[in-house]
Structure formats: structure tokens, C-alpha cells
Amino acid sequence: MTEEILAVTDLHVSFKTQAGMVTAVRGVNFNLNKGETLAIVGESGSGKSVTAKAIMRLLPKHNAQISQGGILYEGQDLLNLSVNDMQKVRGSEIAMVFQDPMTSLNPTMRIGKQIMEGLLKHQKLSKTVAKEKALQMLELVGIPNAKERLEAYPHQFSGGMRQRVVIAMALACNPHILIADEPTTALDVTIQAQILQLMKDLQEKMDTAIILITHDLGVVANMADHVAVMYAGEIVEQGTLDEIFYQPQHPYTLGLLRSMPNLSASRSEPLIPIPGSPPDVMTLGTGCPFAARCPHTMKVCHDFLPKYTHLSDSHTVMCWLQDERTPSAQIPEEVGSVYE
């Protein structure tokens, strides 16, 4: 029943800056299946949001450039579409939800009208039908008194409610893919729980595939089927949810999982942070980007970028520890034991 809906191959995105060209995304590959959730996890500056915007072709034209790669949506390369065709895909086929709900709503326009806009444009519905649909969407995302709220303006909603409206807008045209870029980062924990629950319910009802971009492994564990871990513009490890959480192979994934607070652990147990700071993409060398912070670095890591190693149908990792030449003493216990 898995049907591939989106395939991103070897995507490179570079930005023109005052200091010259900077490659923010350096060869990203992933696939998305119908009705599934792919989580892209990474810290700030890892290139996860840039990847999402590249798929939507929403990168700023004056300084960003997709220098290489393809984005195949149902077999069609989105990078070759005309601006007009892309506009049709955006919203009706692929929709996006941003981190800050206030900036993605037009403050001078009634909510109902904003939801109807997409319906009128993409589905060519009549006004009455579109309004009916907008009302349904608001009810679907759990906004009380939906009928009256259609006439309200964005500032009359709270943060959580606004994000619900944004989700209603995004899903109004039944898109096949929803890209959610840190959808709950600006919200409180109790509201985050509401929105995540809502997204899961809606996905079940509408069979939408979701690309969830987040820095929070807790949110990933709650939502995702597949996980891609990004670091400095590369996907360093990708696999199913269980593979990433229970058989992590990349030292970065491992480090991330260890540095997360664990509610059931005792408080005297110290947290294990990843030392150092995330690298500056402008000054990256030729080696593995994580080499400077990795507790298992070898000489080779500093100069050469590792290849992808394919551990199962779904699990790939980009790390020299997987190379057969690596002495076994160098390999940490957690890595390599699973796939003997």
C-alpha cells in the first residue's frame, strides 16, 4: 500500500552572501510515501527549513539558488515547472504551515475569506460552496462557534487557535502533502499537545502525507513514521522511527538522543551534552561536518566525507564508523551491534 509521492534527490541549495556562495543544503535525498509522516530533525542552521522551502520553491529568488538535484512529485520534477504551474501545485497539492501563525495570516482579512481564497482559486468552487467548505474546515480543526468565527480577524484568536486556522487553510484543498515547518515551536506545551493531536487526527481522516520539520525529538517520537536527521546541510542518518530511536548508528543521532531530558530518569543522572557548537556552514571543510564534535573521530573524518551506508531497506547512515577498515575498538557499543 505504500506509494511514493515525493522523492527528493541530491538536492543542493546555495545562497549568495557577502562572503561568497554558501551551500546550505549539500546533497539531500529522501522519499515520502502517501499518508506517512517524515520528520526532518536538526538544529538551527542545519538546512532543514531551507529544504522545505526548496520543495515549495519559496526560496528568495535574489540570493538563493537550487544548484543541483531534483524534486519529483508524482513523477514530475517541480523544479522544471513554470511559475504558474507551480502556483497550482502550491496550496492545492502541497501545502505548508509555518512556525509563526501570526505572520502566515493576513491581519486585515477575515478568517473565512482567507480560507475561501484557496478554494476559489484552485477548486473553482462557487462562493456559497466555498464558504460551506471553509466552515467545515474550521469545525474540523476544532474551533468553537465556527460559524461566527468565520467573520473574525486573526488578532481575535489566541496563538493556538491561529495555528489551527493556518492548518485549516493549508488543508482546505485536500493537499497530498503538508509541510509543517516547526508548527508548534512558538506554542506552549499544552497547546503543542493539542495541535499535534489535531495533526494526527487530520492525517488519518484525509490521508495526507506530512513532512514535519522540527528540532524536538519528543515531537518526532509522537508523530513520525520515518525520520531524517540533518546536520550542516546533510542528512547524516535516516530510517524508520524505531530504527532511529532504538538503533541509532550516527554519533550525532546518538548524542541528540542522550542529551534529551528523560522524565523517568533520576535527576541525579547527569545529562550528556554534545560538546562544542554547531558548525558555521560558511567555514566547513572537506571532511565530515560532525567531526569536530564527535567523540569517535578518526583521522579520516577530518578530511573526507563519508559515503552513505545502507543498513536496511529504510536505514542509511553517513559515517566512517561503518567502514570495514575502522578498527573495532573505535566503534562504540551502541553502533554496529544491530546489523551483524
Binding site: T9, N29, N31, L32, E234, T286, L305, D313
Partner: peptide
Amino acid sequence: TSKLNEKQLVDSPPLTNAR
């Protein structure tokens, strides 16, 4: 689960001179 791209299995990401 999803099949990986042929390319990914062989040698990816492609090596450029800088790397």
C-alpha cells in the same frame, strides 16, 4: 518501506573536487 534511490546506494552524495 521506501526504496532508496539507486544513486544513494552506489555512491552518494557525489564527490566534488572540494571534498
